Simulated assay, not measured.
Amino acid sequence: MLDEVSKILAVDDEFINLELITAIFADDPNITVLTASNGEEALEILKTHSPDVIILDLRMPKLNGIEVLKILKSEVSTSQIPVIVLSGDYKERKNALKIGANDFLSKPFDAEELKLRVTNNLQIKKYHDIIRDLNEILQKEVRRKTKELQSALDLAKEAEYEMVVKLGMISEFRDEETGQHIRRMSYYSKLLAQMAGLSDYEQNLVFFASPLHDVGKVGIPDRILRKPGPLTSEEFEIIKLHTVIGAKILESDPRLRTLQAGKIIAEQHHERWDGSGYPKGLKGEEIHIYARIVSICDVFDALTSNRVYRPAFSIDQAIGLMKKDSPVFFDPKLFSLFIDNLDAFLKIRENFKD
């Protein structure tokens, strides 16, 4: 016996068969029998009731059993209801099984066999319902846990970025730059990476890694780093070492992708398109695209910011200088993207003023 009330829908155009099916289950308080005398009536009942098993005669007027079966199995709301077809024709039963019938009985049917087949299919339906409910519960739990995990990941990312910014600021404070310079670099670099067609993953990688471009300045003496006048050739050679120092600081496990990207940027952001940069004299696309992106953004921000040795240039002056030197310094495609979308970069500059 089933411990819950189950519904059976019997569909047959012969009244005596409906009476017989109802009588078969009359002594079972856990089973309710609904009846329909044709296919159309059965479909109407299904609009307001959800039976656990359908007993379906195949030969009926108006809408025959095969047509009803096709409708049942094509609708999401009824496709999982077990259907036991009644037919005395072997080919009809075989065709019904192909369409999706779950079981069959020859007609005229044996009452005891009908009861056993219905009971078995009710049990199968019950197990399917339990599995469905469990899946729904699990899906809700997975969604909840996923949401919690995503919140934790977002917080971790925010914390990672803040740590990267603070690390970058260690050197920038000594160079009399600000945390806003670090943040501008992140947003400038991500925007240019997006315009260059980098994936979302790489855009975010550049966003997190670009603040580390000058971390190597922690190894440069204050007397050189903060010197208000022109540097001697010897002092400039020492300044150039910040790229090498930065790369050394950021050496790490290859799985730490942000630090790996930061190492590339720190080491290569002073390389020049024509090969005249440092520390390795890389040329053209030998320079990693992350460093080529950061190079443009860094020069723009440096020119438009106050420095210990000079005041900030105006936007027009800065762009003029960059255009003049672009064949030497910058990837021409990236520089064109930067110039063509200058307003977007100026908006970032406005949002993160010193």
Rank of each mutant, 00 (worst) to 15 (best):
D274Q: 13
P332T: 09
L149N: 07
L282F: 13
L337W: 08
E237V: 01
L225H: 11
E162D: 14
Q268V: 15
F104R: 01
H288P: 05
L303G: 03
S6T: 07
E267V: 03
E113R: 08
F236V: 00
V164P: 00
S74M: 12
G100F: 05
N30G: 12
N30I: 03
A26E: 08
K62L: 10
A152F: 05
E14Y: 09
A159H: 04
G216M: 06
D214Y: 04
A159W: 02
A312Q: 04
E176F: 11
V215K: 04
V218C: 09
G88L: 08
D13V: 04
L256G: 00
N120M: 09
K166F: 01
S106K: 06
L122N: 08
A23M: 04
L86H: 03
I315D: 14
K217T: 13
V33W: 02
I71G: 06
S37K: 08
I54G: 12
I55M: 10
P61G: 06
S210N: 05
A312G: 01
A26M: 02
A36C: 06
T32V: 15
K166W: 05
T243I: 00
H49F: 14
I224W: 09
G277F: 05
E235L: 02
D110I: 14
E14C: 03
T78L: 15
V142L: 15
I71N: 07
F207M: 10
H49I: 01
K333T: 13
I45P: 07
E202K: 08
N120V: 09
A96D: 07
D316M: 11
R184L: 02
I45V: 15
D27C: 05
E75H: 14
S326F: 13
K280P: 02
I54V: 15
